[in-house]
């Protein structure tokens, strides 16, 4: 399941669908619906920065703006990065707890980080 803006192209054998992502996804800034790609063939997807592939077995915490794609069997839960003070002043805000077994893809840069930085220079 790549995030909305990550999908680029796919083979004809790949089906695209939309899935209800749950309100948890809204808090993570990802919107209420998820794109699901399934079937046989290649999928191209991109991100801002580089993409790291991570094999997860159990739980892993990803900053909400950095999650690019994950396997549909995995569950996402938004949570605070630390305590209330740390989460808001420590700059991490909300994070997504990914639970399950499979691969996730994370991007090494973040557009909202760039936007925050640019805003300071206007």
């Amino acid at each position: 399941m790549p995030s909305k803006n990550a999908y680029i192209a796919s083979d004809l054998g790949v089906k695209l669908g939309v899935k209800w992502a749950g309100f948890g996804s809204l808090i993570g800034g990802e919107g209420l619906f998820k794109l699901v790609v399934s079937g046989n063939g290649k999928v191209f997807f991109g991100a801002y920065g580089g993409i790291l592939e991570k094999e997860i077995n159990g739980e892993f915490i990803v900053d909400s703006g950095h999650l690019v794609a994950y396997e549909p069997t995995m569950k996402l839960k938004p949570q605070l990065a630390g305590g209330i003070f740390s989460s808001f002043f420590g700059g991490e805000g909300f994070v997504t707890r990914v639970e399950g077994k499979g691969k996730i893809y994370i991007q090494t840069r973040n557009l909202s980080g760039l936007a925050t930085w640019v805003n300071r220079h206007i």
Binding site: F60, D63, H66, G82, S86, F89, G90, R97, N110, G113
Partner: peptide, 18 residues
């Protein structure tokens, strides 16, 4: 640095100093 974390495994505690 604040805001540098992309991802981490479970069970890591985070605290912030000013």
């Amino acid at each position: 640095e604040a805001g540098a974390m992309i991802a981490m495994s479970q069970g890591i505690q985070m605290s912030t100093t000013t």
